[in-house]
Amino acid sequence: MSALVIENLNKTYSNGRKALVDISLSIDKGDFYAVLGANGAGKSTLIGIVTSLVNKSSGRVSVFGFDLDRQVDDVKKSIGLVPQEFNFNIFERVQHILENQAGYYGVPPEESREKIERYLKLLGLWEYRNEMARNLSGGYKRRLMIVRALVHSPKLLILDEPTAGVDVQLRKNIWSFLEELNKEGMTIILTSHYLEEVEYLCKNVAIINRGEIALKSSIKNLNHYLPTKTYIFSVDHSIDTKKIKEHDNDFHLKSIDRGTFEVTLSSKVSLNDVFSYLEEEKIKITNVKEKGNFVENVFVKLTKGDHAK
């Protein structure tokens, strides 16, 4: 069964701006799905429509088979949302925010307390449960929003930039927490500007560009969308740049410094060809790493120029 099906979704705002144009998307149950796009591409509008925060202009949305137009309550019960901006009452205490949110979903406090305690402890917020939300740091506020999205046991968790502005350690904690949820069977949709996050966590990805789907792919197949890939090699001694020229047709090598060079391969050429060449030259490789991040490279290629706008 599909967790989320979107068909021919359109959104035009009252000022005439077309935020989404004929979007169609299907996300399987249990998937960890990334929705990427430059600022203003339409990601938040898409999430807003699915979570009933934005009215759609046309199209159809269904969540676990429930139609958004006809079974909106069932759709809402199935989804937990972690929005991009902090949207809780900063003058309320952590425990109250969570109990109230569970209450809005019809879960009485005596039933939600156990779950709230479990998630607060898992995300290191338990000792702050009686703190007023405004006293929490940005990272703790972010975690509070994740717990809040889970208090009613949703089957689909949607996270809009969940790790924006949090430190590296906390980001890794949130990653492992989300991985665990996904292993337990929860479907997760994520938007993020940290593309290594997407590469690490997600199985599938859609890239939105100017309100349209520019690409839908599994993360492992994203490589096919890149005409070239670049690697950085560290070797035990400098290489002869004249000889490098001879291989320009197969792969392009560029010396960075003594013992380090950059190799750019077309998608038809294997990395083994580079290894063979280096072996012939009796050059010992000490390290190889990909330059940049391939999700990032695909993203930049597909949304070229839109960042500046």
Partner: peptide
Amino acid sequence: IAKFQKSIEELLVSPI
């Protein structure tokens, strides 16, 4: 105020 600080979204996303 709930609208202003967006906490009204807590209600809008829920089946209340």
